[in-house]
Simulated scan of single mutants.
Amino acid sequence: MAELITVARPYAEAVYSLATETRTLDQWSDALAWLAAMVNNPDMVEVVTNPKHTAKEVEALMLEVLGERANESVKNFLAALIENHRLMLLPHIASQFELFKAEAENIVDAQVETAFPLTEEQKAELTSTLSKQYGKTVRLDVRDNADLIGGVRVLVGDDVIDSSVRGKLQAMAASLKN
């Protein structure tokens, strides 16, 4: 997977640079999300990887699905990906693009796992605390995970804040083994 991200990053950087210059970040974000969703669809993968379909047929199909989202730059980008056999990188390109966009907008994403559902007040408090800690606007992605037993585990980039009961039990078990 690291190799795919490595190959996808220059494409994402090029698209991000173009989108920044032309002030079309949101349009590119939308188009890339659609393109990534298309190549994640098993039916589309079957069409894209089937040698019976020409590159022009694949391109025409994808542009038809994109509709108005496909401006001239998007069309050229899609053609380049197809020509270089990099179409299946689209989900990674879209993901990298969103990371560049969030960084420029001073936004950080936090994945939060909780043993029990959080109230809106708890989410607001957690968002505020994390925003102060990271000095950025925080977007929460909250998911329930009963395996945590209690508490929360927060992932922000490479940082892990584990205040779950399961995490504390694992830390205790590790210290007892030493």
Rank of each mutant, 00 (worst) to 15 (best):
E120M: 08
R23C: 12
I107T: 11
V156F: 00
V7L: 08
K123G: 10
G157D: 10
D158A: 06
A36F: 01
F100T: 02
F100A: 05
L32Y: 00
S164Q: 09
N106W: 06
A94P: 01
V58H: 04
E21D: 12
A12T: 02
S164G: 05
A36W: 04
V112Q: 14
A33F: 03
V142I: 08
P91S: 07
E57R: 14
T129F: 03
E59N: 14
L78C: 04
G157P: 11
A115G: 07
M44I: 13
D158I: 04
R153I: 08
V58N: 10
A14E: 14
W28Q: 03
A94S: 11
V58I: 15
T119A: 12
A80Q: 09
A12R: 04
N71S: 09
E113H: 01
A174Y: 02
I93D: 01
N41G: 04
A37K: 13
H53I: 11
R143Q: 13
A174M: 10
E72V: 10
A55D: 13
E105I: 00
K168L: 05
L35G: 00
V112L: 04
S95G: 13
G151F: 01
E113I: 01
T22E: 15
R139G: 03
S95N: 09
L81K: 05
A94H: 04
A173Y: 01
D43W: 04
S128W: 00
L4F: 03
L87E: 03
D109Q: 12
F116V: 10
E13F: 00
A60N: 14
E103A: 07
N76A: 13
L130Y: 00
L87F: 07
E125L: 10
A102E: 09
A60Y: 03
L61C: 11
L169D: 09
L148D: 13
K177Q: 15
L126I: 04
Q27A: 10
A60D: 11
L25I: 07
Y16H: 05
A104L: 09
T6W: 15
D141Y: 01
T129Q: 14
T22N: 13
E21K: 06
R9M: 15
Q27N: 11
T114P: 07
L32A: 03
E113N: 00
D30Q: 09
